[in-house]
Nucleic acid binder design. Structure first.
Length: 358
DNA sequence: CATCAGGCCCTCA
DNA sequence: TGAGGGCCTGAT
């Protein structure tokens, strides 16, 4: 398999490990070379691909495994290879192909490129954004610390919603571990030569999950205890967020169509997402930014609050709500990126430690 | 054994 | 309308 090239300014390592609240990290392909970003991601490309003889072939969401690699001293692009699981290749056999044709492979590659464009926000003009940053005295230093950092957009909005609910009042290590457990327990399994990979359960799947290891049930007029450990959300370490996740899933089935959200204006989408249980202003903005691509969102957690307070309000203690209003007002369509750059600039420059010790 | 972690929910002025 | 207490859980 020849490797494909993407030519865009991006630092994969920085982007991947900047702790953005959209998805748990991917899987290292090799730990041997630390000077190289070398990771595997499993995703599904859209279902229809162009086949031979002007026919289209429905592979119903073709699973592909991508191996992305980038030398850490070259952030002007990256390369990837991809592989398909044996199971799906057999589906191709069943529709009369003894292998995928060149045309079909090209179609798949186009879809992969399109997915990578979305996930890494590659259409975003970083150079233009840097001009914007340099005009702001406070933001200007961030350019040197964050060169090549891009938004890391979720593959799946629902996964992003659950991940974001999970991240509230939590540590990065814990919420990512919980999400990994959920995928391991209940995600669709797809086997590649490189190993087993897992999808994320659907909203409907979540309705079947229990909130505690033992639940009371009633039948024949009497109560008894049911061992539901195997479908127990709390066994994934999500704690009191388990009922939030279940109720949110129910609402996403009954009353909120995720397909509508991206068509809405930001304010309207914000109010809608805010109705989900376990979702406050900060989590709502994370969902809109990382799950739906609303770049005018300004997720305001305690750190952004402290940073904004320090840089723009002379250290005066301001509320998270006021921080959010400030970010949206001041940075406009760049709010999401400004938040990302502020956070990592503060972390890398030592500003965060300085504020913390106050 | 406390404390705390990239908030949210609920209660009560 | 907003301030403040309590909270699953696992790491330190």
């Amino acid at each position: 398999m020849s490797s494909q090239k993407i030519n865009s300014l991006i630092d994969l390592n920085l982007t991947q490990y900047s702790g953005q609240t959209s998805q748990s990290p991917w899987r290292h392909n090799s730990m041997e070379n630390i000077d190289k970003f070398d990771e595997l991601i499993y995703l599904k490309v859209p279902s229809i691909i162009d086949g031979l003889d002007d026919k289209t072939i429905n592979l119903n969401g073709l699973p592909v495994l991508l191996n992305l690699s980038q030398d850490k001293d070259n952030i002007n692009g990256f390369e990837y290879t991809y592989s398909l699981p044996q199971k799906v290749e057999k589906q191709a056999f069943s529709i009369g192909q003894d292998n995928l044709s060149k045309k079909e492979l090209q179609s798949i590659e186009r879809e992969i490129d399109s997915n990578l464009n979305n996930i890494y926000d590659l259409e975003f003009d970083l150079e233009k954004f840097y001009e914007f940053l340099l005009e702001d005295e406070k933001l200007a230093p961030s350019v040197d610390f964050c060169k090549g950092l891009r938004l890391f957009i979720a593959k799946d909005p629902f996964e992003c919603i659950i991940s974001s609910i999970c991240s509230a009042n939590n540590s990065i290590a814990r919420w990512t571990a919980s999400i990994d457990k959920i995928k391991l327990n209940w995600g669709e399994k797809v086997e590649f030569d490189e190993g087993m990979f897992y999808g994320f359960p659907s909203p409907k799947d979540f309705l079947d999950f229990y909130e505690t290891p033992i639940e009371q049930s009633e039948a024949d007029g009497r109560r008894y205890e049911v061992d539901c450990y195997t479908k127990n959300l709390k066994s994934c370490g999500v704690g009191y967020r388990a009922p939030y996740m279940k109720k949110a899933s129910q609402m996403l089935i009954d009353e909120i169509d995720m397909n509508d959200v991206s068509k809405m204006a930001y304010d309207e989408a914000f109010d809608l997402i805010l109705r989900l249980p376990g979702v406050g202003p900060k989590v709502a903005d994370c969902i809109l930014l990382y799950g739906f691509g609303f770049q005018e969102a300004f997720p305001s957690d305690v750190w952004i609050k402290r940073i904004v307070s320090h840089l723009y309000f002379d250290g005066e203690d301001i509320s998270a709500d006021k921080t959010r209003e400030f970010g949206i007002e001041r940075f406009g369509d760049y709010a999401g990126y400004a938040q990302l750059y502020l956070f990592h600039y503060a972390r890398k420059s030592g500003l965060m430690d300085e504020i913390k010790n106050k």
